[in-house]
Design a protein around this nucleic acid. Structure first.
Lengths: 342, 342
DNA sequence: CGCTATCATGTTAGCGCTACCATCGTTGTA
DNA sequence: TACAACGATGGTAGCGCTAACATGATAGCG
């Protein structure tokens, strides 16, 4: 005797639903729902029955349905320009640790330094009813800003400080550039080359250069800039060193846009038998472990990347929990690490 | 004159819905849906009207609702044990590039080398009606296997080859261990130390050690193992070198479990004024760029990580598109890179 | 000209869950 | 003893979308 109804059959997995759990536990679906999502709102004994039924049936909640019904998912959209750069990975780690501990799931998007791609990603992510958005950087396309203007969930911009859409956690890259330039001047250098790679994408390197130039010009020095187009950073650093050696006017120190470039140069100097800082002083940015393991140790600026992710996540969570957290900026600062390379 | 109905009001965002788009375009919701998701099933003119309405209203599809209704999301669950290790990042990049190009969204989970955590993540991900699951590695808890046994979507296990649940793309780590051991024997070494770090989590290093030991024992040599517990890999490598220098019986070569350790040792040898390979030969695994920039260049084994991710994604996509792709293994192989460090 | 094939569109009924309101005891308080 | 307050549970109605089936118009054929 079949119990097939004559109603239209619908796709639908074989997975047990909350209704079946509820039936098995002898309660209504809504009580079963509460037993799982708001334990304090049901009697302890009832809850135990529901949990037993869940276990026995191997029930897995359909989060799509739950999110649709409640109009909020526990997704956090995280958008970074690249995964190839350790810096973003560390920020993501900080975000992930903190968000996952609170039951949020990260939706990771990668723009490849393309603001149109960012717009597309954000559109998709809005479609998933994300609870919040975290993006690396303050630069967005107009379309993107328009899209976000009508969005009422928290937006967190990390990495640099500035005119933010909502929440903002980062550090002052211009000041970091000034800081290193001052250090190099203090070491007696007057002919300092700034070397970056693909700075159109990595515009924060451009901000550091701005600070660098400002300080050098105030001191009456030139601030030549060399921009490379390499993909492998270590190779680019090596090339940067070569080009500096033949730079018209002579160069005594290189301020690299990051530690990868700087380390590439340092290792290349070793191969070539050049003395650092005797023949050429070398400085970087980021404070990666690698730079502290080479000889001489790299002078660099350490940014608290993982901490930046954590702090950003904490701020977002606070905002999600208690409606009104003031729009605020958090400067996580940086630290000059003086090695023997300058 | 208000047009508020007296029906119960429900939460619900202010976002326009497909129904409003359909009204604006003068069609039924299903036609609007088709215009967006199956353009070929709708008259070109009608479609243009719908797209105009979408544009004008700033409509963003609610993907939760769509996925719930169709019982399939375009999510791909990707589970890795750690983000701190470049190796996984590169695999993720390969996956992401390929999947995103096909309109899939990656849900990234990080187990921290904990199989219980993996189980929890997979449970959650199943709740999102993922289209497929990609996990790093073949080792899972029993609970996890039980959960996946009743799951009818593609499962892809990457990194190593072996007894897989479904699809499998990776390389033979035991053979890689043998390969390096043979190389070191060929260089005349008879006292070779294998150095790994936290190998309980990084069990693939254990597989390489197994191959390494097999070859050495066949050659009548001991195969001592040193396992370190450091977090910073470069530091651990330095310590590995120190410990090898005082190892009872004498050691002439170190086979490190990865390039980070090996490079740490190499840089430490430089600082300490030791000759490599004269005082100690050093070998690694992974083929990271870093190892090729130090002097002497590191002997290592290069694994095609990004390619592994791409290939895995392609296989999954094929399976998703045309129901029956045979359960198959793909060996992506590896390549011995001989530097001057051995 | 009647018949089927094809295309474009519409109607209906959910997908599985939770918000909202209602109900029914059981207490505590005046 | 009456009444508010509260705690536990349930009924109903959607969340916004799409699968499945239905319909009507047009084309193609002998």
């Amino acid at each position: 005797m079949s119990n097939e109804t004559t109603t239209r059959r619908r796709r639908g997995s074989e997975q047990p639903t909350l209704r079946q759990v509820a039936d098995a536990a002898g309660v209504s679906p809504i009580t079963a729902s509460r037993a799982l999502n708001a334990p304090e709102r049901v009697n302890e004994r009832t809850r135990a029955r529901v949990l037993t039924a869940v276990e026995r049936l191997g029930y897995v909640p359909n989060l799509l349905a739950g999110s649709l019904a409640s109009a909020r998912s526990r997704f956090i959209a995280v958008i970074v320009p690249s995964l190839a750069n350790t810096v973003f990975i560390e920020v993501i780690q900080g975000l992930q640790d903190t968000f996952e501990a609170q039951g949020y799931q990260i939706l990771l998007g990668n723009t490849d330094y393309d603001t149109d791609r960012e717009y597309q990603l954000i559109r998709t992510f809005l479609g998933w009813s994300c609870s919040a958005l975290v993006t690396a950087g303050l630069r967005h396309s107009e379309a993107c800003r328009a899209l976000l203007a009508n969005w009422d969930k928290p937006i967190m911009e990390v990495m640099e400080l500035g005119e933010a859409l909502d929440l903002n956690v980062g550090l002052d890259h211009t000041e970091a550039g000034r800081c290193m330039a001052r250090h190099l001047l203090g070491r007696g250098h007057r002919h300092i080359l700034f070397v970056g790679a693909r700075m159109h994408g990595d515009y924060r390197a451009g901000m550091r250069y701005t600070g660098h130039r400002e300080v050098l010009e105030q001191a009456g020095c030139d601030a030549p800039l060399l921009e490379l187009d390499h993909y492998g950073s270590l190779d680019a650093g090596a090339e940067g060193l070569e080009r500096a050696l033949t730079h018209p006017g002579g160069i005594s120190a290189i301020h690299f846009a990051n530690d990868d470039l700087a380390t590439g140069a340092l290792l290349h100097a070793q191969r070539r038998g050049l003395s650092v800082p005797g023949d050429m002083a070398i400085a970087g940015f980021n404070g990666l472990p690698l730079g502290q393991h080479v000889t001489p140790r790299l002078t660099t600026i350490r940014s608290p990347r993982q901490h930046m992710g954590q702090l950003a996540a904490e701020q977002v969570i606070r905002r999600l929990e208690s409606k009104r957290v003031p729009r605020r900026q958090h400067d996580v600062g940086f630290e000059l690490l003086i090695g023997e390379s300058t």
